[in-house]
Write a protein that binds this DNA or RNA. Structure first.
Lengths: 112, 112
DNA sequence: TATCACCATCGTAATTTTGCGATGATATAA
DNA sequence: TTATATCATCGCAAAATTACGATGGTGATA
């Protein structure tokens, strides 16, 4: 595979793709929803609420952490895993800006 | 892999993940940006503007079509590939709703 | 008809993702 | 000290993604 993904595109494109990719799996969406509903940051309720093994959840959480959507203080026993407000806000802006960039002025001009 | 992704999660979660996944690759972002800048729907400028083979672009376009973000009338010669206004709007809502669902009320409560 | 431009699809190879059991590490509770 | 609970990580297997060359199909053009 000659083309190396990350070097061929600019920073914005890579950043956007990175966040979107993290959201690109239903399990990860479900995990985020659990974290949203959770007032306290107590964790591992995730494992109970989802039909996935603990190792799998942990893996998904890592992806979400890498994307900056989640942060976690791994204080064993008093575990803490929650949404990263800064990262979330940034993701919202990045995604929002991109989606807003297209205004459907061409609705009637385009294709059929 | 016992758990079959699509059956274990609800419709909304799958729909969201599906769109996000389509956005989860820099090449696809770049393709959409080309389509956004393109007033006319003339295509294959994409192939010229990106460092990817035609077959690869075509594959990415298929992913974007499946996600409803792009539509294409394959009228040979007078080709037409453009952003799908309806699908785009829907994606914007789906993504937007999800990202808005989290308000950072817990910024100070959470973790550290 | 033969050629050209445009695009989908097939076949293939490398890489990445996904999922899970097993294992280890760490702090608390018994 | 000995469990127990919580979570990360390793190792493995199956599946999906990514990229490309080659091929084929189709409409316009020479």
């Amino acid at each position: 595979m000659p083309i190396t993904k990350t070097t061929s595109f600019n920073q914005k494109q890579n950043a956007l793709a990175h966040v979107a990719k993290a959201l690109g799996h239903p399990a990860r969406i479900a995990i985020l929803q659990v974290l949203m509903e959770q007032e306290t940051c107590v964790c591992n309720d995730i494992v109970m609420q989802l039909p996935l093994a603990q190792a799998t959840i942990s893996q998904h959480l890592k992806v979400l952490k890498d994307a900056g959507l989640v942060k976690g203080e791994i204080a064993p026993n008093k575990s803490c895993y929650c949404i990263n407000p800064e990262g979330w806000k940034l993701a919202k802006v990045i995604l929002g800006d991109f989606m807003e960039a297209y205004e459907d002025q061409a609705t009637d001009l385009c294709c059929d």
